[in-house]
């Protein structure tokens, strides 16, 4: 039963990882940006909630209403300015710019909030859970996060495949010059993709804040997990990202069940194994570029 519980916790954790990885996957898939500030953006999202919540409401669920939209605007603006500009001078520049953004965010947070860690309190919801059997615990909160993750992936997938803007984003991902000659306003569309990516990362940051304590430097670890989930799942495939998140979550919790110190390492080892055996990931995008 302990093992069944480990599997369940792993899948629940996978939801969080998938939520994290969604934005990373989107930015890389559409704009070719490897966003080294991704983890720090998530943490920034959590801190924005910490800073603004007291004046709105104490329950972190309220942050869901204003942090993701705020980040969507932030994403749009940074793509139109810093990131878009750097893209025109090559992939190395974007890498450096996002690295710079990461450093700036970390230090600004240290300056503003000190190095102390924070966490969100959700009142009774934090600890409430289902116990279908002894040794098995299903936290409502964690199930909620998994549901949100799946919902976000479904919505993003539908947005990309069914809407006009979504088709433009895919066109842009395929070939930006060809997109321009079919009349796509490439800068605007790129910025919309960035807005969606930033909104999902803010959501992920809030979810993370309910899972664990966070501090200004938590972002680097999150970035690695997000990368691993994306690569295990296969670049350019959102369903792959969900699968990748779950595989990583499973590896970590099962590893931790074997030995409490082995969890994170087990995740890295599974990641390396996938890279060695299936370098394109478990569910790579099917059509050749």
């Amino acid at each position: 039963m302990i093992w069944v519980n480990a599997v369940i916790q792993g899948l629940l954790l996978g939801g969080l990882f998938a939520l994290f990885a969604c934005g990373l996957s989107l930015l890389f898939g559409v704009l070719g940006i490897i966003n080294l500030a991704h983890g720090d953006l998530a943490v920034l999202g959590a801190y924005v909630a910490v800073a603004l919540l007291p004046s709105v409401h104490t329950n972190v669920l309220w942050a869901l209403l204003f942090v993701p939209p705020l980040f969507a605007v932030f994403g749009y603006v940074s793509q139109r300015t810093v990131m878009g500009r750097s893209m025109r001078s090559g992939p190395l520049t974007t890498l450096l710019v996002t690295f710079g953004l990461s450093v700036v965010i970390q230090n600004a947070l240290l300056e503003g909030f000190s190095a102390d860690s924070h966490s969100f309190t959700l009142g009774a919801l934090t600890t409430r859970s289902l116990h279908p059997a002894s040794d098995i615990s299903l936290s409502w909160l964690r199930m909620g996060i998994l549901v949100v993750a799946v919902l976000v992936l479904v919505v993003v997938q539908l947005f990309l495949s069914r809407t006009g803007i979504g088709r433009q984003i895919r066109a842009l991902a395929d070939d930006d010059e060809a997109a321009a000659i079919t009349g796509v306003n490439t800068r605007h569309v790129a910025a919309i993709a960035a807005a969606v990516a930033f909104a999902t990362v803010a959501l992920a940051g809030l979810a993370f804040g309910t899972y664990a304590q966070f501090s200004p430097t938590s972002g680097s670890n999150l970035l690695i997990f997000a990368f691993e989930a994306v690569i295990i799942g296969g670049l350019g495939s959102l369903w792959g990202t969900l699968a990748g998140g779950c595989v990583l979550g499973l590896a970590q919790t099962i590893g931790a069940q074997i030995d409490p110190t082995f969890g994170v390492l087990a995740g890295h080892l599974v990641f390396l194994a996938v890279l060695a055996v299936r370098p394109n990931g478990l569910m790579p995008a099917t059509v050749e570029a």
């Binding site: 895919r170 079919t182 050749e288 570029a289």
Partner: peptide
């Protein structure tokens, strides 16, 4: 746009262009 169908390719052009 290699990942999209012929229809979608042309649809993007019809809507945007």
């Amino acid at each position: 746009f290699t990942g999209m169908t012929v229809f979608e390719n042309v649809l993007v052009a019809a809507q945007q262009g």
